[in-house]
Amino acid sequence: MSETATFDRIKDEIATNPVVLYMKGTPVFPQCGFSAGVVQVLSRLGVKFKGIDVLADPSIRQGIKEFAQWPTIPQLYVKGEFVGGADIVREMYMNGELATLLRDKGIEIKE
């Protein structure tokens, strides 16, 4: 698949779904500790999200890195915007910034 087509698929996913996590494995069976950590944070916040398994699709696995100019997985997107990878998500969860960001973007979270 061409790079443009891959980018279009990514843009479509993050425009259609309010919270998207590009990850290794699935939310139920993460295949990497970093991906598992972000799933855990989102679950604790009670956030509904779409998990996309990059291991299932080599063009997305490579394309998402170029799309975000970010060389690692996982990658969290909220309302079409790149929030960060595992370290950033963990840090923002710990200091409450993630809950604030999600609320500001109109995403329902567990209080």
Binding site: W70, P71, T72, F82, G84, D87, I88, E91, M92
Partner: peptide
């Protein structure tokens, strides 16, 4: 935070 990590990723692009 994102910009900081991108700086580091850029410096270490060969290793990554």
């Amino acid at each position: 935070r994102v910009a900081r990590q991108r700086i580091v990723y850029q410096i270490l692009q060969d290793e990554l």
